[in-house]
Structure formats: structure tokens, C-alpha cells
Amino acid sequence: MTVQRPIPDFAAAREAMVESQLRPEGVTDPAVLDAMRRIPRENFLPSHSRPLAYADRAVAIAQGRFLAAPAVVGQLLTQMMPERGQRALVVGAGTGYSAAVLKAMGLAVAAIESDAALAAIAREQGIEIVEGPLEAGLASGGPYDHILIDGAVEYVPDAIIAQLADGGRLGTAIAERGITRLTVGRKAGGAFGTLSIGDAGVPALPGFQRPRAFTF
């Protein structure tokens, strides 16, 4: 006898995500809340992981790659303040969830991903995505009003900062000395400054390890 598990009520789970995860964590931008309420997060996960789509945690999408927790995406986008009609780049887009949220907010979204299998899933979800090294960004589509690096990094390469428009914002998680902090940076007059907005458990994104000093 085969026992079938009930299909989760994903629509109810999305609403619960907004009310019990996003709002309590300071996600206040109505456009961010509306987009995350509408985008079916489960479509961006492997079939066996879909019941975890709205859990308050990162979920694996491939070996060493994860879909960030909903509150992480919501907090970064709230602080980045994206607006309809602006242009955004998602670095390390994975299966395309964060890019889809930005697209639902009315932005023109480009994405770059190093994993061909993940990029293929993103394309199936309607995301414009290029395959290539993440640390190089995607200069051909810049400059961008917003750049989201979708994972934790030890540093932000100058090549990616150069792709921000003047006044543009960049959101990511910076890992330093065992602590990972959500961080939003802004480019102004050629300078780039950052502000930490809180600690968070965000898995590392490959390719962004700080170069180690040579030692004997």
C-alpha cells in the first residue's frame, strides 16, 4: 500500500511567510511584500525540497548552493529600495527566485549564474540569465541601479562595484571572522560605502573568498 503525502497549501504558506517571517524581521516595503506574496517560491526548488519552500531557513538547490531564507531576501530588498523601471543585476542567481521577485516589482532584471543546470531552471521561470564567473558580474548590461549578490561573500570585487550606476545600491551578506552580516552598499561620486543591517545565517556563494596573504 502506497501512502501519499498531502500536497502542501503553498498559497497559505506564502501568506504565513509574509505575516510571520517578513513583517517581524522589518520587511516593510509594500512592493517587496506584494512580490514575495505572489511569487511561487516552491517553483524554484527541486521537487523533493518543495515542502520546505516557506521554511525560515536556506534550502539546498544543488551541491553547495542554496536558496536564501525568505527574510534574508526581503530585508536586503527593503533596504536597497528598488523602484519600478530601474535596472537590476542578480549575481549568483541560482534558480532565479530573487530575480523573479525583482521582476515582479517592475524592474528590468539581468542575472548571472555559474552553474548551467541552475541557470536552465531560471530560464524556465522566465529569467534572463547569462552563464559565467560570478565574481566578474555582468558588465555588458550595466550600469545597474541595483546589484544583489545572492549569497554570503568575503568581499565584493571591484569589477562588480564598477557596474553600479552612480547612486546605485548593492545588497549582499558579508562573512568575516565567523560572522555573517546582511550589508547594503551605495555608490556615490565614485566612492562606495556600506552599512550592516543585521546578522544572518546565509550560506557562502562560491568564488568570493578573499585572497589569502602568502605565508611561508
Rank of each mutant, 00 (worst) to 15 (best):
M1A: 13
T2F: 11
V3Q: 09
P6M: 08
F10S: 04
A11V: 05
E15L: 07
Q21G: 10
G26R: 08
P30Y: 09
L33E: 15
D34L: 10
H48E: 10
P51A: 04
A55S: 12
D56Q: 10
R57D: 13
R57T: 14
A58Y: 08
V59W: 05
A60F: 03
I61K: 11
R65D: 01
L67K: 02
A69T: 11
G74W: 03
Q75G: 03
L76D: 08
L77W: 02
M81W: 07
E83F: 00
G85T: 04
Q86R: 07
G92N: 10
A93I: 09
Y97G: 14
A99D: 06
A100L: 07
A100Q: 14
K103F: 00
D115S: 05
D115M: 00
A122Y: 11
I127N: 14
I129S: 05
V130N: 05
V130W: 09
L138T: 01
L138G: 00
S140F: 00
S140I: 04
P143Q: 04
D145N: 11
L148W: 02
A152P: 06
V153K: 05
E154R: 06
Y155D: 08
Y155S: 10
P157H: 04
P157Q: 05
L164Q: 06
L164N: 04
G167T: 06
A173D: 10
I174P: 04
A175T: 10
E176M: 07
I179C: 03
R181V: 08
T183N: 09
V184P: 09
R186Q: 15
G193A: 13
T194A: 14
G198N: 13
A200V: 08
A204Y: 08
F208Q: 05
Q209W: 01
R210D: 04
R210A: 10
T215F: 06
